[in-house]
Write a protein that binds this DNA or RNA. Structure first.
Lengths: 207, 207
DNA sequence: CGGCAGATCATCCGAACGGTGGATCCGCGA
DNA sequence: TCGCGGATCCACCGTTCGGATGATCTGCCG
């Protein structure tokens, strides 16, 4: 039985590339494309694909993670395979959390992509090797995992805010900000806010 | 006369996409692909294309800018069109400097891509609108341009170094470091090192 | 030659920061 | 039920940072 696929990516080039690659396989057929999350949700109801490939960075509208969440609400049995450029800790976790069945990087070889599509359509979890090792590494070092509150603070810190501004933004006292920061520093292995910003931006990807 | 094209990109998907798009045009023909800068240089001598599309972020080996430089050394009349994901100030300037005839973003529409390929093959400079506006903006605000020394310091600052460390690294006194920082802050429109790091990393792109 | 921009160094001061050591409250799981 | 981790708060203290100001030296361009 052929795997019918919906491609979601805001880059026409990437959609054309995936379509060309996948359509070259006799058992895979691209039946629809979407350039935004909203289009993707509509296409799922209209075209009933057996698999969705999803870019996380969609130019406008809802982002890939939110799109995954909505698609999973529509059809809990429809596997969504993330196909994106960067593998950052946060993105992988958020995507899996939203219900993605796999996480594939765009620099994968055609062979890896075919295998991932067939596997995901069959309900198997698929992770690109770099992603897999990253996930395992993170699970093996839970002491380095930031708490939600710390991550929130780090995000704002990465904008260059001062302790005072952080306190106001998060509705906590400056003292609490400093406590959180101390924890973040120790987890990230740094001892200045500038170094923390550097690590944060490199880890979590930019823009 | 048909435009023969060499595609350079480390992502098989992107190559397939560009090939699919370009080959759909009667006057454009993709005659070769390369996944690394080294392969690209070889392909130029072997295949004699009339245009090269170049990704700047090539996984391994020489980067796109260096590849452009070497290709231009081989054939000064062969136009190289940058086709990449991110438009950072530094990348654009470096690519143009290396001899690129145009700078196209991967989220361009197929129509824009066709026009750019035809234009570049005819020797015309082509810039994606966001890139163009960025360049103009930078030229219109020379007061925001950092001096080489300031840029050097900013790079190290973005690693999270303290003033003392910066001084030792650059063989200057801490007082001088603070002077440079003050200039950088005023040019970037910030007033803390953390914010400067944030701006620097976002501007100059990561990894 | 004169001026201007860049790089260098210096001093002063108040504000911000980072480290340390505590404290309370809550929810969850052993 | 007891403990533990997460989140919140506080005080103290030395260090670092940022702003203001001024100075010298170099090289370049008109």
């Amino acid at each position: 039985m052929t795997v019918t696929v919906l491609l979601v990516d805001d880059h026409a080039v990437v959609r054309a590339g995936l379509r060309a690659l996948l359509d070259s396989q006799p058992d895979i057929e691209v039946i629809a494309e979407a350039g935004t999350g909203e289009e993707a949700v509509d296409a799922v109801t209209d075209c009933r694909p057996r698999l969705v490939t999803m870019d996380l960075a969609l130019g406008s509208g809802i982002d890939g993670v939110e799109a995954i969440r909505r698609i999973r609400q529509l059809d809990r049995d429809l596997p969504v395979l993330v196909f994106t450029t960067y593998d950052t800790d946060a993105d992988v976790v958020r995507a899996i959390d939203a219900g993605a069945i796999g996480y594939l990087l765009k620099d994968s070889t055609p062979q890896e992509i075919f295998a991932a599509v067939r596997g995901a359509a069959a309900g198997q979890s698929v992770l690109s090797p770099p992603v897999a090792s990253r996930l395992l590494q993170q699970m093996q070092r839970p002491e380095e995992a930031l708490t939600p509150r710390e991550a929130e603070l780090l995000t704002l810190l990465a904008k260059g805010m001062t302790n005072k501004e952080l306190g106001k933004a998060l509705f906590i006292s400056e003292a609490t900000v400093k406590t959180h920061l101390a924890h973040i520093y120790s987890k990230l292995g740094v001892d200045t806010r500038a170094a923390a910003v550097s690590v944060a931006l490199r880890r979590q990807g930019i823009r």
